[in-house]
Design a protein around this nucleic acid. Sequence first.
DNA 1: CAGAGATTCAAACAGTGTTTAAATCATGAA
DNA 2: TTCATGATTTAAACACTGTTTGAATCTCTG
Lengths: 223, 223
Amino acid sequence: MNSVSDNCTKERLLDAAKKVFAEYGFDETTVRAICARAGVNLAAVNYHFGSKDKLYLAVLEEFFRLAADKFPLNADIGQNSSSEDKLRAYIRGFLNRLLGDGDPINEKLGRLLMAELLNPSECFDTIAQRCIHPTYDALYSIVREMLPDTDAAIVHRCAGSIAGQCLLFDYARGVIQRLRPELALEADSIGSVTDFIAEFSLGGIARILAEKRSSCSPPNPSA
Amino acid sequence: MNSVSDNCTKERLLDAAKKVFAEYGFDETTVRAICARAGVNLAAVNYHFGSKDKLYLAVLEEFFRLAADKFPLNADIGQNSSSEDKLRAYIRGFLNRLLGDGDPINEKLGRLLMAELLNPSECFDTIAQRCIHPTYDALYSIVREMLPDTDAAIVHRCAGSIAGQCLLFDYARGVIQRLRPELALEADSIGSVTDFIAEFSLGGIARILAEKRSSCSPPNPSA
DNA sequence: CAGAGATTCAAACAGTGTTTAAATCATGAA
DNA sequence: TTCATGATTTAAACACTGTTTGAATCTCTG
């Protein structure tokens, strides 16, 4: 039965797992370390969550749920906002979700979630579906507004380019930090990165749009 | 001494490791499976390579070396080629390196290498340095030509946006394939993806350049 | 209070990467 | 040739992992 003590060890486990996973990553954390930190028996992980994988999934899913609640992808957007403003709000929300709220634990969890989204094991398909699907669809809709009467494949490519920029800017941060500290992207605020990606992407979309027009509007120049 | 038999087991090991890693990924590959496939003793991996990690590193490094030889980042580029052509050639070479030459083993290795570049353990810093540094610097130089008299930070951001698009287009392919098969990016050739990313990025750079000019050229409008 | 089901616990299990020390091999000097 | 030295191979063990097990304990319900 799920009464008080049940919730207690299950929650203690989830809480400890969040911290240990954030500190050591998935591979380097042991179930024994999590249980020791939570003060519960070793078998509790498999009893309450089924496996180390599923516990990890639960941690990432809770992180995503909280981040999605805290950072909507359409903040300050109304019915008559321009498509450009929608795109800016989307990028800001997206980066905020991944980069977190200042809590270093959440920042690390965001990175782990992204790693899992980029390279999901079958076990994580559910969370990937739940996280990627609605998030990507929202982006697609915004780009679609800017590119009416355009092949869906091209709209998907634009959306992919935008998502790629966001993901790399977050994900590569740790790598750049270690390999090329002189680049020092660390000092950039989310605001300035948001502005840059938005402007760069708007320029890209404009060029795609112009290219489309120039290659389509002249009716049969050869005939 | 490194005579014939030495090279023989070491090479057999490297060859077997390449195939097993490509088929099962790093985590799901056991040293025992590699040794069985190579027909050598279990301890050979640690004797000849030091560890499973270092063997993996050797596999990825050889893959990168071969791919870099086969696909230069400045194919068909001469002294007086335009910056735009240089960027197109770079993107094409970059995608070719990662997507491979049609050999499914190399395609999988490209994905594994990218995963390692995006999320390198300390053990892989050397290969990351050797692969990322010159590759990124070449891209930076090209973008720098298009944005003279611009803050290095902005040039880096542009280069990062371009790299992000390339990485996501390759890396996400497997994910999209499984989660959103209806998107069917699979049918895209490297050529069309190259053209799209190049045009999108040229538009982005143009917009950054225009923004820069409009905010800099009017001398002291407030004074 | 009794018992049935949920939960905890210590112990063991099967698998991993790695190490070890002896056995084997190859090579070059006497 | 002989044989000693160093490189290589081998089977066995080691330390560690995630997971399972079956008994012990707890917690409620009838």
